[in-house]
Design a protein around this nucleic acid. Structure first.
Length: 588
RNA sequence: UGGGGAGUCGCCAAGUUGGUUAAGGCACUGGGUUUUGAUCCCAGCAUCCGAAGGUUCGAGUCCUUCCUCCUCAGCCA
């Protein structure tokens, strides 16, 4: 045992530290859970919660998930998994005007894709905030009854005027001292549809002079006649995030409610609300707590919902799953893998410091898992002919290529060698730069898995472009034979038999933006788009690639990792996307 | 100029209640292995923790002052 390597410790972060401390202090030892969300009375019928902690991933279904969400997903689901807890997937759908089923579907699909689920035994922990509207309404009436909320008839403009500024206190609303009875009646009328949209709003009664603007009587319910994707036309009043979110957490017995930094100022209200509802015996202690971490910023991409929408609607990309987009749907089509995102989130950590993660970190993570997982194949992306003059005209010979250099158990496959081959344009230089060790006039190079050849000449077209390279092979040097190493060459190039090659559409993706910080300063981020973010080519691939299925991944040797596009591939005619290039120490 | 946060190596990020030579990853630089200029391996990489003072036998960790950045004035989330 002692000689065993220590398991690599999980990267520590302040949230894990909080969880560990809470667990150590048995903070949730008496928290009950009946098996479904509900108020104090409901949960009181249950047993002590078997889940040591409960977290939640609470997206609003008003857009597509992106890489930033992956950080939150791995954090929340990962914490639950690591500490014997459960993580809920909860749709925070309190604004009917922005949300719809299409987003709900794509979000559940992507969370699954990342490797997480919400079915825990008999318990299905998939929830909708909109299913709590009844309780929220009750909670609002309770606040009114206890003098903690009032109905305000000021217009939105008046409210803004009276809110004060960052440095000046606000002014009390003329309606602030309305009687409880009148508030109750008005709020019930709001619910009954007797008041126009925007005419009345329910506000928490806290302190218009608070230095924290979020505590200056925040609006908690508004009148809005809109069809809700889940509750239809049942309601014409909807709770605000500020009010709804803490309640959602409490009903679900969440222990650690983790969100991003911009909600820090909201935490005092979060606590205030839950305390008031606990005083009213609607909720029981221990109450959930909110913790904030820094959101992800990635260089060379944009992650704001608005900008992503602009890119799609402005046709700068082809839809939400364009492989260049940092959406999870796009990343998946690009060939990125869930394990790569897991590695990435482990690697970047969690803290409260604003930071910009270099995009190459993400790419390296993908390379790392893809290197391990991908079989090798041969592809010539920019083909020129190589003719072996001393090779028989119609001879075909088998060469054996390992499917993975570090995994012999994956076996070998045969690739046909003939007189005429496709090789990479960049593998031949008429006048080689210093340090170049591939094909050059009179130079020798190995045809990977085949013979050593010696260059004897080349041909150019009218434009001066090289079209064909001529060579002679050394018969005793075939890979795998005794004489293979008789002649040592440094260069080793890949090739595909011209007679057998599969000419395929291949998309070479590059970063979407040419600037590390798109739109920084007074630049328009649209002007920072990389005009060459995709290049579609016809490449010559080894014959076996013709049978690739959608989402099959390969390393095209010396080029990078590629995936058969899940949308555009047809049986017998796969199309490939370049996920990421190989690292290249040979600076061009 | 009010409130709330954050500032540790190029990029991230550990640093318990102050205690000996400031983790780790990525990047980078050397060297080795290699029929991918890939992978892999080995070595190197902050006398310094935003700045300046102070307390202490001893401070990234405590105190004071200052600087920089982020964030809040939706009937969005």
């Amino acid at each position: 045992m002692s000689s065993e390597k220590e398991p690599i410790a999980l990267a520590s972060n302040f949230i894990r530290a909080i969880v560990e401390k809470d667990l150590e202090q048995h903070k949730f030892a008496r928290k009950k859970w009946v098996g479904s969300p509900g108020d104090a009375a409901h949960q009181a019928m249950g047993q002590v919660d078997a889940a040591k902690i409960r977290t939640r991933f609470p997206p609003e279904p008003n857009g597509y998930l992106h890489i930033g969400h992956a950080k939150s997903i791995f954090l929340n689901f990962g914490l639950a998994r690591d500490y014997g807890g459960i993580c809920h997937l909860r749709f925070d759908d309190t604004n009917p005007e922005k949300e719809n089923q299409e987003y709900v579907d794509s979000i559940t699909e992507m969370v699954h894709w990342l490797g997480f689920g919400w079915q825990n035994g008999k318990e299905n922990n998939l929830y909708f905030a909109s299913n709590y509207f009844d309780f929220m309404y009750r909670a609002a009436e309770s606040l009114i009854e206890n003098g903690h909320a009032y109905v305000d008839s000021q217009t939105a403009d008046e409210m803004r005027m009276n809110r004060g500024t960052l440095t000046e206190p606000g002014k009390n609303s003329p309606d602030r001292d309305r009687s409880i009875a009148e508030n109750l009646q008005l709020f019930r009328e709001m619910r009954a549809g007797k008041h126009a949209d925007g005419s009345l709003v329910l506000r928490a009664k806290i302190d218009m002079a608070s230095p924290n603007i979020n505590m200056r009587d925040p609006a908690i319910y508004r009148v809005r006649r809109a069809h809700h994707h889940n509750t239809g036309d049942t309601w014409c009043i909807y709770p605000m995030y500020t009010f709804a979110h803490p309640i959602e957490d409490a009903l679900e017995q969440i222990t650690h409610s983790i969100c991003t930094l911009e909600f820090e100022d909201q935490r005092p209200f979060y606590d205030w609300l839950l305390e008031r509802l606990a005083e009213a015996n609607l909720l029981a202690h221990p109450l959930p707590h909110q913790y904030e971490f820094a959101r992800l910023n990635l260089t060379y991409v944009v992650l704001s919902k608005r900008k992503l929408i602009d890119l799609v609607e402005g046709k700068h990309v082809n839809g939400w799953d364009d492989p260049r987009l940092p959406t999870l749907a796009g990343a998946r089509r690009r060939g990125y893998v869930a394990e790569g995102f897991k590695l990435f989130t482990d690697r970047i950590g969690v803290s409260k410091a604003d930071s910009w993660i270099e995009y190459t970190i993400l790419e390296d993570c993908m390379r790392e898992v893809l290197n391990e997982a991908s079989e090798r194949r041969i592809a010539v992306l920019d083909p020129i002919k190589l003719v072996i003059d001393n090779y028989a005209d119609n001879k075909t010979e088998d060469c054996f290529a390992p499917n993975h250099p570090q995994k012999p158990e994956l076996g070998k496959r045969t690739v046909p060698l003939t007189k005429e081959l496709w090789i990479e344009r960049e593998d031949f230089e008429e006048t080689p730069p210093k340090g170049f060790f591939r094909l050059m006039p009179d130079g020798m190079v190995r045809l990977r898995y085949g013979y050593v050849v010696k260059c004897t000449g080349f041909e150019k077209d009218a434009a001066g472009q090289i079209t064909t390279v001529r060579c002679e092979y050394l018969p005793d040097t075939k890979s795998g034979t005794a004489g293979a190493d008789a002649i040592k060459v440094k260069g080793n190039i890949h090739w595909v038999s011209a007679a057998h090659a599969y000419a395929a559409e291949v998309r070479l993706y590059d970063r979407l933006f040419k600037e590390a910080h798109p739109g920084e300063g007074d630049r328009d981020y649209i002007n920072d788009l990389n005009p060459n973010s995709v290049k579609t080519i016809t490449a010559q691939l080894e014959p076996s690639l013709k049978d690739a299925k959608p989402e099959d991944r390969f390393q095209f040797e010396r080029h990078g990792y590629f995936v058969a596009d899940r949308k555009d591939s047809v049986a017998g005619k796969p199309v490939f996307n370049r996920t990421v290039t190989l690292r290249d120490a040979w600076q061009k």
